[in-house]
Simulated assay, not measured.
Amino acid sequence: MSMMDKLKQMLRGHESQAGQGIDKAGDYVDGRTQNKYSSQVDTAQDKLKDQLRRDQGNPPPPQA
């Protein structure tokens, strides 16, 4: 079993907590870089959350 499979298995059932962790990590990076890369951080957060949803079998939300 690969490390990614183990992580996915550990996150199963804790999606909301993982999403909060992604937000908190992004806020930390924004703070450390004085919001210099906030758009890139926001994009990374969105992609991580979409990947988390896909890994749990939920389709990503429609793009506006």
Rank of each mutant, 00 (worst) to 15 (best):
M1Y: 01
M1A: 07
S2W: 05
M3T: 14
M4D: 11
M4R: 14
D5A: 13
K6H: 07
L7N: 00
L7H: 06
K8G: 06
K8P: 00
Q9T: 15
Q9S: 13
L11D: 01
R12F: 00
R12E: 13
R12K: 14
R12L: 09
G13K: 01
G13Y: 00
G13L: 05
H14I: 01
S16V: 03
S16E: 09
Q17G: 07
A18C: 04
A18S: 02
G19K: 13
G19D: 07
Q20E: 13
Q20D: 12
Q20R: 13
G21T: 10
G21N: 07
G21D: 08
G21Y: 01
G21M: 15
D23G: 07
K24D: 07
K24M: 09
K24G: 02
K24V: 07
A25L: 08
G26V: 10
D27N: 12
Y28D: 05
V29G: 03
D30W: 00
G31F: 10
G31A: 10
R32C: 01
R32D: 09
R32T: 12
Q34M: 09
K36P: 03
K36C: 02
Y37H: 15
Y37W: 14
S38P: 02
S38M: 09
S39P: 01
S39G: 04
Q40G: 04
V41H: 11
D42L: 04
D42V: 05
T43H: 11
T43A: 12
A44K: 06
A44L: 12
Q45N: 11
D46M: 09
D46I: 07
K47P: 00
K47A: 12
L48V: 10
K49Y: 01
Q51R: 12
Q51M: 09
Q51E: 12
L52M: 07
L52K: 06
R53H: 05
R54W: 03
D55M: 04
D55L: 03
D55C: 04
Q56P: 00
G57S: 05
G57T: 01
N58A: 15
P59R: 15
P59W: 11
P60K: 14
P61R: 08
P62C: 08
Q63D: 12
A64K: 03
A64G: 15
A64D: 10
